[in-house]
């Protein structure tokens, strides 16, 4: 199976005054293409740090991280930005849409910054908005939408660059149970289409929806669980 993201002895150490905090402590793991993982753990277990490194917005203090075979340590800031823009889709807990932009423009943001954006970006954005059920809201501003709708826009945005890796950080944390269900259904659909999804969560109900569960504790992998062939 093709390996999308490969961690080898990855550590991340923060300096807090004289103290060192090891947020990640020697993690090694391979995430395969098309896998759906829930990364779980209590707060402070290092799951957000791991997600930041997987998303190439943070660098490991030591160890090696490869995305689609490309060693992160070899890339400079611009290369990492390009890599994020092309191959990684982010979904955040607080949606993180840009308030000045409407739905269509928000979905298009990752394409703005690519060196060589695809020519059919706008059609793709419209198709994605329709897919997440917001085809009739293209010119709405984020503040005119409900939380569930905003998160669906964010998911459409994470898909615009056809990413190798979708990273969701507590994507359902700010949503009620009904909306959570809708969003998780959407992830299931994406998984079924063969997308690679890494979902950070601390909620067990969310974690059980994933194919695999990685439990972190004190910056180490405490447990890897198979949920048995996805749904």
């Amino acid at each position: 199976m093709e390996i999308v993201a490969s961690l080898r002895e990855v550590s991340r150490v923060y300096k807090m005054g004289d103290n060192e905090v090891r947020a990640l402590d020697g993690i090694s793991h391979d995430f395969g293409a098309g896998e759906y993982w829930a990364i779980m753990g209590s707060s402070g277990s290092g799951k957000s740090t791991l997600l930041n490194i997987l998303g190439c917005i943070d660098r490991p203090t030591s160890g090696s991280y490869r995305v689609r075979g490309q060693e992160m340590a070899d890339l400079d800031d611009d290369d990492l930005s390009e890599l994020r823009g092309r191959h990684i889709g982010f979904v955040f807990q607080s949606f993180n849409l840009i308030p000045q932009l409407n739905v269509l423009e928000n979905i298009l943001v990752p394409l703005f910054y690519q060196d060589d954006p695809p020519p059919d970006g706008e059609e793709r954005a419209v198709a994605l908005a329709e897919r997440v059920g917001l085809g009739d809201r293209l010119d709405h501003r984020p503040l005119e939408l409900s939380g569930g709708q905003q998160q669906r826009v964010a998911i459409a945005r994470s898909l615009i660059n056809d990413p190798a890796l979708i990273l969701a950080d507590e994507a359902t944390g700010n949503l009620d149970s009904h909306t959570t269900e809708e969003i998780l259904d959407l992830f299931d659909e994406l998984h079924a289409e063969g997308k690679t999804i890494l979902l950070v969560t601390h909620e067990d109900e969310v974690g059980t929806r994933a194919q695999h569960v990685m439990r972190l504790s004190d910056g180490r992998i405490a447990e890897l669980v198979e949920n048995g062939g996805g749904r």
Binding site: D78, S81, E82, R86, I98, V109, Y113
Partner: peptide
């Protein structure tokens, strides 16, 4: 600041 973070995460380079 947050918007800047979002844009950076979504692929914006420093020059952007």
């Amino acid at each position: 600041t947050r918007e800047i973070g979002i844009r950076r995460a979504l692929g914006a380079k420093r020059r952007h």
